[in-house]
């Protein structure tokens, strides 16, 4: 634990230089998205009738989903380039390994930092959701940990993969063929029910869909309607996060030992 705390101290010291801009960005992004899409686009959507959204305004539907989708995107970024940096560019992870720190601790510490960063992003986002009046239940506060769990379901496996890479070439593929399609197709912008029936079951394969379902259920207070389903969402995300942590411990060790 103290080993992880030391890495957090290090990462926090690095972050101190950029945190104002970073937090402002975390605030500005949901404000713009919710204003443009939730209110602007939502104005048109709502006039055509909102039966598809279960009687919700488009803003109410969109906001919690966008929370999960946004932290997924940030998490994917935080678990690719900084890992490449620590292992190959500045080699700071190798510097850590020359101290009593073990590869497992280095992997855990850096993933813990991503979790903290994602907590910041999710908290600011949730604050904006509430500010826009898009939350209809006090349970919205639990959308923060749900979003962080979603983030880690992506961050841990992606970090594990990033540690096996020598160049950033494949990171582009992760974003182009993974993150971006998931961002759009996981029920963030429109209900999965609007997709052709044949591909609807594929949504179960999208970790983001599980995350969106959770954050939306919490923000709208409908999570209790299907408690077992909610548990299944948590289960899927947890398996991905824990599996990713296990894999990251192994790939970090393999890379650090090789030098």
């Amino acid at each position: 634990m103290t080993a992880v705390a030391r890495i957090l101290e290090h990462r926090a010291l690095q972050y101190r230089r950029t945190f104002r801009a970073s937090l402002f960005g975390s605030f500005l992004s949901p404000v713009m998205f919710l204003a443009a899409m939730g209110i602007g686009l939502g104005g048109y959507v709502d006039t055509t009738g909102n039966a598809a959204f279960g009687g919700l305004t488009y803003l109410q539907f969109l906001a919690p989903g966008l929370l999960a989708a946004t932290v997924m995107q940030s998490a994917a970024f935080e678990s690719t380039f900084p890992v490449m940096g620590g292992l190959h560019w500045t080699r700071t992870f190798h510097g850590m390994y020359a101290t009593p720190m073990s590869p497992l601790q280095i992997a855990l510490g850096n993933l813990a930092w991503i979790a903290i960063r994602m907590t910041m992003v999710a908290t600011v986002f949730t604050f904006v959701v509430v500010l826009f009046g898009a939350a209809s239940s006090p349970l919205v506060i639990l959308a923060i940990p749900a979003a962080v769990l979603t983030a880690m379901a992506f961050a841990a496996p992606i970090a594990a993969f990033a540690a096996t890479q020598r160049t950033v070439n494949k990171f582009n593929a992760i974003f182009r063929f993974g993150i971006t399609p998931l961002f759009i197709l996981s029920g963030t912008f429109f209900p999965i029910a609007s997709l052709p029936a044949a591909i609807q079951p594929l949504a179960w394969l999208s970790p983001l869909w599980h995350g969106v379902s959770l954050t939306r259920g919490l923000a709208l207070g409908t999570i209790g309607d299907a408690p077992l389903l909610a548990l299944a969402h948590v289960g899927v995300l947890s398996v991905l996060a824990l599996g990713g942590i296990w894999a990251a411990a192994r790939t970090f060790e393999a890379r650090l030992v090789r030098g």
Partner: peptide, 19 residues
Amino acid sequence: SLDTELTVRENLVIYGRYF
């Protein structure tokens, strides 16, 4: 393997913390 996001002195201080 110096940390280019930190100052010269911070590099030493943070490294000592790892010990």
